[in-house]
């Protein structure tokens, strides 16, 4: 007799446990059916224009340029030394400044996005704050060679207040 009672008790407690769980899922089902309160996903490609990443977001390494197309990189190569993957290469050149003195400047600041692990050591190490994080995260391309980027814009110059 006791065994039969236990048997039915087990069945009832099992059903009760299932309904407890169903209550939770049912609640969200009802909320989702009638309101937008529980929508946690974004319609990504459609909301591209409104999509704003956090300020600190690490999308890619960029070189900041001011409105006169001047950057702050003097080609010292500290970012290259600090990069753990060798994704930065600086091609330097000699340039004459206004006094006619030859100074070291960058010809190309080559950044290989495909090798970058976004650790941020180059940006932290830069003594003249020439590098910064970009917000762009759509890096998919059809050709691998497009992932090798030159960070200094064509025709850009070094800012005057940056020491050699």
């Amino acid at each position: 007799m006791k065994e039969i009672l236990n048997y039915f008790q087990e069945i009832f407690s099992a059903i009760r446990s299932l309904t407890t769980g169903m209550k939770v899922t049912g609640k969200y089902f009802a909320i989702n059916a009638f309101t937008d309160k529980q929508v946690f996903t974004q319609k990504y490609p459609e909301n591209r224009k409104e999509l704003k990443m956090f300020d600190a977001f690490r999308g890619e390494v960029i070189m900041t340029h001011n409105e006169n197309n001047e950057h702050r990189c003097n080609g010292c190569g500290i970012c290259e030394l600090n990069c753990p993957n060798g994704s930065i290469e600086i091609i330097a050149k000699k340039e004459n400044n206004e006094d006619g003195k030859a100074i070291r400047a960058i010809d190309q600041h080559v950044y290989q996005l495909a090798m970058c692990t976004f650790c941020g050591l180059c940006i932290k190490a830069c003594p003249s704050n020439a590098l910064d994080w970009g917000q762009d995260f759509e890096h998919a391309v059809f050709d691998r060679s497009k992932l090798t980027k030159v960070l200094n814009q064509p025709g850009s110059k070094i800012q005057k207040d940056i020491k050699e």
Binding site: A14, S17, T20, G21, V24, T25
Partner: peptide
């Protein structure tokens, strides 16, 4: 809710 959903589930 986690407990209701899984912990007590038969």
């Amino acid at each position: 809710e986690y407990d209701q959903l899984l912990t007590g589930n038969v």
